[in-house]
Design a protein around this nucleic acid. Structure first.
Length: 588
RNA sequence: GCACCCAUAGCUCAGCUGGAUAGAGCAACUGCCUUCUAAGCAGUAGGUCACAAGUUCGAAUCUUGUUGGGUGUACCA
């Protein structure tokens, strides 16, 4: 059986259609539109299909007439308890109890692997995320892209892709000179003890002082006597290394570890820029030209000048893009072309870039590059992460990297905890802006979904450990429980929710929408809390029933399955599941 | 000007790539603790899915306009 029960029944339905209408040639794209999904209203059953509506046109028959034929055969399927026609021609399926019990059994057997699938067929995917310039610590906006990229990579891994988590280090551009110059001033400050004013345009952040101190420890006063030409390479090197260490420790704090760091300097050093541009040139996509001045924005210093351009308009971009500056050096874009060329040559046909919304204007040209360089063999998917509005008690925290007093990622995570931070970063789709109120995330109330979900996991743990202590049932004793004893509506609702995970992960992977797993885990917690409370109003529905060891074991099995699914969902989110909630603890 | 994104209950947001009577949470109101954690549950009330056309059996979802907000807009990265 396909782990994704919706695909499973979709296949069954399609087979039945082929049997029922053998003379009609139904093409694949049409059959793919035939769905099996859970109806909005549970009163409509467990599964609904739109098959007869889709088939109306090719069969030139009324939907209800088609449905009647299909229903007859669907009713013969073992796992289908009943199939009936409803509304404009939907077929509602009610699945048998034994099907649900068998599904629960599979979920229990799968343990933390439940939800995994082979959708990706082991294909290679490169997910590039964060890629912040090595000029300072990460701030909160970086944190959003970081979590979304990380979780998307986790999801894709879970659904069967061979995923590489990657960080592109912009260590070759002008901002590195700015970094080095700033570092020199701070170094001078440390060495001479004289207060230094950081001029406009350099990085005023105080983090540079610590770096300068370390530099001074290593080099003493020796750099003071050197010429700029001599000390700049040393400072660049030291600055980049220090900043990368800083960034990596921020990432570690956020629970993120990239597989690969690719440096811009190494791309340039391997002459990949020349190679990639030659490839484009051979395709006639590089030319010398003059761009029009941009409209709607005053540019006092604009002047027409010939530049080396990439014909990105060929692939849907708004204007062609410069790859060389007027002084003949590469633009930022050129090494990035080479970098994507490198990704493709490393065998990635699925390339995903997670960027900040402020890079929105960059999307079309980078997609154009990948399409051109791969001759349409690779696909580049760019996800933009909208800004995070950081609040504390309703008041806005302004973040500006230039000012130097921006709110760092470290600062925020230290206040709310890694788990809560990640959980909240996944609460909105990446296209939409996100409000993040530090006070609310710390708040230990039902207002806070992190606690709601963790509480459900803690409850699972609590029952299971209680049962274990009482010797009623340990986890090992639970295997082989008679799951058919689970017949209450609330129990079945939980089994059904558990069974959805594979589909949720597949769809999150396909659509690259990480918020889906967030909402799933909240829903799952809700269904579990609901079941828990049926035991409050009716003691016969509690998990542990004196004198009924078999029933108790069956129910505890369901609890165990729930605990596992909660945990594996949280694992994908990079959030640590918690066994016991204590007051005043920050979630890790 | 142009490009990309957003607009759903009083507030914060879901809505399973086009399905049935649009759903949660918060706030409001009503119930449920001699109970495996009430940090929870059940219920009531709350809607012109920004607006207008179009596509079709069927639209919050797709197309095109319009309005309002965000972001970006040569030789920065």
């Amino acid at each position: 059986m396909n782990m994704n029960i919706f695909n499973h029944f979709q296949n069954i339905i399609i087979e039945i259609i082929k049997e029922t209408f053998p003379d009609v040639d139904l093409d694949k794209s049409l059959l793919e539109r035939i769905t099996a999904e859970s109806p909005r209203d549970p009163a409509h059953g467990d599964m609904a299909t739109n098959a007869s509506m889709i088939l109306t046109k090719p069969l030139k028959t009324k939907p209800r007439d088609i449905a009647e034929k299909l229903v007859k055969k669907l009713n013969e399927v073992d796992d289908i308890q009943s199939a009936e026609i409803a509304g404009p021609g939907f077929i509602n399926l009610r699945l048998s109890l034994s099907f649900w019990h068998r599904t629960l059994d599979i979920i229990l057997d799968s343990g933390l692997k439940w939800g995994a699938s082979d959708l990706g067929k082991g294909e290679k995917v490169n997910v590039e995320y964060v890629s912040a310039n090595p000029t300072g610590p990460l701030h909160v906006a970086h944190g959003r892209g970081a979590v979304i990229g990380d979780v998307l990579a986790n999801i894709l891994t879970k659904v069967g892709y061979d995923v590489t988590k990657e960080y592109y280090v912009n260590d070759a551009g002008g901002q590195i000179d700015v970094l080095a110059k700033t570092l020199f001033l701070r170094y001078k400050e440390v060495a001479t003890g004289e207060k230094v004013e950081i001029p406009e345009g350099l990085y005023p952040g105080e983090y540079m002082i610590d770096v300068a101190k370390k530099l001074h420890e290593q080099q003493g006063d020796s750099l003071l006597n050197k010429s700029e030409e001599e000390y700049m390479p040393i400072l660049r090197e030291f600055g980049i290394d220090s900043m990368l260490d800083l960034i990596k420790s921020d990432l570690a704090l956020a629970g993120i570890k990239h597989d690969v760091f690719t440096s811009e300097r190494s791309i340039v050093g391997r002459n990949l820029v020349e190679k990639a541009l030659l490839d484009l040139e051979n395709q006639g996509l590089i030319y010398e030209g003059v761009l029009e001045p941009p409209k709607g924005k005053k540019l006092d210093d604009w002047e027409a000048r010939p530049q080396t351009l990439f014909k990105s308009t060929e692939y849907g971009d708004d204007v062609d893009r410069a790859v060389k500056k007027s002084d003949g050096t590469w633009t930022y874009f050129a090494p990035d072309i080479a970098y994507h060329y490198d990704k493709y040559n490393r065998g990635f046909k699925h390339i995903i870039d997670i960027l900040g919304a402020d890079h929105g204007g960059y999307v079309k040209r980078i997609k154009a590059v990948v399409t051109a360089l791969s001759k349409d063999q690779a696909h580049c998917d760019v996800r933009l992460c909208q800004m995070v509005k950081l609040l504390k008690g309703g008041e806005i925290y302004k973040m500006s990297k230039r000012s130097g007093n921006f709110i760092t990622l470290e600062h925020v995570i230290n206040q709310v905890g890694t788990g809560a931070f990640r959980f909240m970063m996944l609460s909105r789709k990446s296209d939409a802006m996100l409000d993040f109120d530090i006070d609310k995330v710390i708040e230990q109330s039902k207002d806070n979904p992190v606690f709601y979900v963790q509480y459900s996991h803690a409850r699972c743990h609590s029952v299971l450990s209680l049962a274990s202590e009482q010797g009623i049932a340990s986890e090992s004793l639970l295997s082989g429980s008679d799951l058919s004893l689970l017949t209450a509506e609330s129990e079945l609702a939980l089994i059904k929710k558990l069974s959805e995970l594979p589909r949720i992960l597949e769809q999150a992977g396909i659509s690259r929408e990480t918020q889906r797993i967030h909402y799933y885990v909240v829903e799952l917690a809700s269904v579990f809390h609901s079941l828990w409370n049926t035991g409050s109003s009716d003691s016969k529905l509690r998990f542990i029933i004196d004198g009924e060891p078999e029933l108790t074991k069956a129910r505890l099995s369901l609890v165990l399955a729930t605990k596992n699914v909660l945990k594996s969902s949280l694992d994908v989110m990079g959030v640590k599941a918690i066994n016991e909630l204590k007051s005043n603890t920050i979630l890790e």
